[in-house]
């Protein structure tokens, strides 16, 4: 049994689909967080999911954008920790804007040739989970990331 100590302040992302935690690590730009301690537990046993990944992040609250992972997987649960206790369980929502998370696949889009242009997608239909490229308005429904 692997033991990882609890955290004083930060987040615990639980019920991550097994094998996808590194993708989330990069999406949340956890490698860029100064003064943060991150523990990634991969392939942990889960009654609900069979196997799952978990990410524990010791960091000041508010320093990561959780909406981004709402786009990847609604089922991830987020415990918010302060003074060694869970103070909230965050419900993940679809972000209104995705910046450099997904890439426009329309070969006729300006993003295919213009250098240095951010890939920006706007949520246009929350029910159907449809994002459209800010520039060409091409719809994007697949859950793929850059």
């Amino acid at each position: 049994m692997l033991n990882i100590s609890g955290i004083h302040e930060g987040y615990v992302l639980d019920h991550i689909k097994a094998g996808t935690s590194m993708k989330i690590y990069h999406l949340l730009k956890l490698d860029e967080l100064k003064d943060a301690t991150v523990a990634i537990i991969m392939n942990a046993k889960s009654k609900k999911m069979g196997h799952k990944d978990i990410i524990k992040i010791e960091c000041p609250l508010g320093s990561i954008d959780l909406d981004t992972i709402g786009y990847i997987d609604h089922n991830i649960t987020v415990d918010v920790i302060k003074n060694d206790s869970i103070i909230a369980k965050e419900k993940l929502a679809l972000p209104k804007v995705l910046k450099n998370v997904i890439k426009c696949k329309n070969p006729r889009c300006i993003t295919s040739i213009e250098q240095g242009l951010d890939q920006v997608f706007i949520l246009t239909d929350a029910k159907k989970e449809i994002y459209r490229c800010r520039y060409c308005e091409e719809a994007y429904t697949e859950k793929e990331t850059i």
Partner: peptide, 10 residues
Amino acid sequence: RHPKEGAPLV
């Protein structure tokens, strides 16, 4: 006018 979609917005 531009052949690439979204160029005027950029």
